[in-house]
Design a protein around this nucleic acid. Structure first.
Lengths: 150, 150
DNA sequence: TTACTAACTAAGAATTATTCTTAAATAGCA
DNA sequence: TGCTATTTAAGAATAATTCTTAGTTAGTAA
């Protein structure tokens, strides 16, 4: 489902935007891509720090910002006040647990079709839509178990 | 569409949660209710400060927090890093302009029915849904004009 | 291959949004 | 009218993020 970019693809994308393919950037991108869920900058920092102790938090933030600008990743504002990041670029929806602040991604073609059809019938004046997502709010029953839509 | 709470209703709701109906709280609630859009705490502070110069920013934050806890208002995390607040409690959807960071509310019964029906067919394991909303992302064409869905 | 330069990084200071602390004030009850 | 738990103002403290700066490096050009 999730289209993982290869290293070569990432480098190419960076090049296209005049961004140098530094070790730090590749490490950060790979870490985010390997992460399930939506880590905060701080969480991502912990992950990459293990193998790259000299990588600074400032660099991490700048890198994430650059990636967002280039649309290599997405940024999601979260109710706990922290930004979370996501390498999954495909249009997808969110299940949000108001207790744990977790965001669970899900994709559903049928839902996508349904909403697309609805929006085609409507007209949004003075607005260019790029994409949309459904957010389902609620609470996990067992916070330690996974949530799954079937 | 938007069910404005009367002063008496607000007081009653506060009472029900053992919150005192102070002047500050009523002023803040009325200001938020009178605001179109989703002001940040800072913006709300400017509004209420005009007529209540002694009301402190700390009180504003504490009050908003209390209101959210009691579900008198909603809190929305925004990509620019600030929280925004909303006295419109009815289930409604968001049009989000990635340029101006504006959030435009819209309600649509048909859409609501459509999504509700879809979700009924699905099953979300380990999760109690409370509500949902559709977020439509894009950019305003003319940032000074209004966006409207028709 | 080497040299060059614009872009990048580390480190820490600065900023911004928000929360906390505390002494004084007040709503709502008795 | 007095009592008391709750609330408030003011400012200090914190957390997330951005900015600054001097040194480093990727990618190009010789």
């Amino acid at each position: 489902m999730i289209e993982e970019s290869t290293l070569a693809q990432i480098k190419q994308k960076l090049r296209a935007y005049n961004l140098k393919a530094t070790q730090q950037r590749l490490v950060i991108y790979k870490a985010l891509q390997a992460t399930e869920g939506h880590p905060t900058a701080e969480q991502l920092y912990e992950m990459v720090s293990k193998d790259n102790p000299s990588l600074s938090l400032g660099t991490l933030y700048k890198t994430l910002e650059a990636f967002v600008a280039v649309q290599l990743i997405k940024k999601v504002a979260c109710e706990d006040g922290a930004m979370r990041f996501d390498a999954n670029l495909s249009t997808h929806n969110h299940i949000f647990c108001t207790n744990t602040q977790e965001i669970i991604d899900f994709e559903d073609k049928e839902l996508h079709t349904l909403i697309t059809a609805f929006l085609k019938r409507k007209n949004i004046d003075n607005f260019e839509m790029t994409d949309f997502q459904l957010q389902i709010n609620g609470q996990k029953v067992n916070p330690k178990k996974k949530v799954q839509i079937t």
